[in-house]
Amino acid sequence: MEILISIIIGVLFTVGTYMLLMRSLLRVVIGTMFLSHGAHLLLLTMAGLQRGGPPLLGFDAEAYADPLPQAMVLTAIVISFGVTSLILVLAYRTYKVHKTDDLNQLRGSKDE
């Protein structure tokens, strides 16, 4: 299972990197999303995929899964939610002001 998920993480990172290197603003934003998904999945996988019950009071199980990586992933997801929405707004404003979403044209001139 770990190997399968590792491959998925690899794919996510590849796609993310590819998107990050593209010229369109929106694709770059989507690239960062893929990368952060990959990182979150990696965090969960690296902590070991366990078969225990959920570490909640209502559940009785023989063994419980390690709650720490889950808590961390949740925090990381919340943060990336906030950051992603901020980047989306920023990309949108940049597009509105500059009337282009091509990063090549957003390079700026030398003498600023």
């Binding site: 960062t32 952060s36 950051v83 901020l86 700026g108």
Partner: peptide
Amino acid sequence: LRESFKYVIINVFSSMLFLVAVAY
């Protein structure tokens, strides 16, 4: 707007690497 976008993207990328390092 133009330069901040780059600043944000590079920092998001490094935060992602931070998470990867934490995972390892």
